[in-house]
């Protein structure tokens, strides 16, 4: 149908410049692919997807979700999903992690932010996995707050303001 423009002389060596196989036909406009219409999907239930874990970048103005620390603390203390020993053990771990953050922000100790993040993630996972079966709403709220909580801990200024209440705000009171 379409006459292929074949050159008369056989190509002895490969002509490097012009691709032979493709006749320079300008690509036709894309056939009938209208801009993706994005069919109406049910509203995503994910509340405020956390931003990518920017470690060193300055925190965005509205960082993640707002955390009601006191509310989370109260709910954790009062949930019946985990027993007393487990609560106390988690409190111990929270206190230990806070202490590591404190020494980190004071420039002491050998902890790095990456190491602290690892420990923090592990602790959140422990809490969430302990809660998810019997107190799923609390597990979900803690999980969705994790970025905001991390921002509080990782920022030295915010951590200091948290400092006075840190052992109270993030952890449980000694029962």
């Amino acid at each position: 149908m379409t006459a292929q423009p074949k050159p008369a002389e056989p190509p002895a060596s490969k002509p490097a410049e012009q691709p032979q196989s493709r006749p320079e036909a300008p690509p036709p406009p894309k056939p009938a692919t209208p801009p993706p219409p994005r069919p109406v999907t049910p509203p995503a239930p994910k509340p405020a997807a956390p931003p990518p874990p920017a470690q060193s970048a300055s925190p965005p103005p509205a960082a993640a979700a707002i955390v009601d620390l006191t509310g989370l603390e109260t709910r954790l203390r009062e949930t019946s999903a985990i027993g007393l020993f487990t609560k106390l053990k988690l409190k111990n771990e929270v206190d230990d992690l806070l202490e590591r953050f404190r020494t980190f922000h004071e420039g002491r100790g050998g902890a790095t932010l990456a190491k602290l993040r690892e420990s923090y993630n592990l602790l959140v996972l422990k809490v969430v996995s302990l809660l998810q079966d019997k107190d799923a709403p609390l597990a979900r709220d803690i999980f969705t707050s994790r970025e905001a909580l991390w921002n509080l801990l990782a920022d030295p200024v915010k951590f200091k303001t948290l400092g006075s209440a840190s052992t109270r705000g993030l952890a449980w009171r000694r029962e």
């Binding site: 985990i82 020993f85 053990k89 988690l90 771990e93």
Partner: peptide, 8 residues
């Protein structure tokens, strides 16, 4: 509770 603590 004890199971959880020992696992933790």
């Amino acid at each position: 509770d004890l199971t959880s603590v020992i696992a933790l």
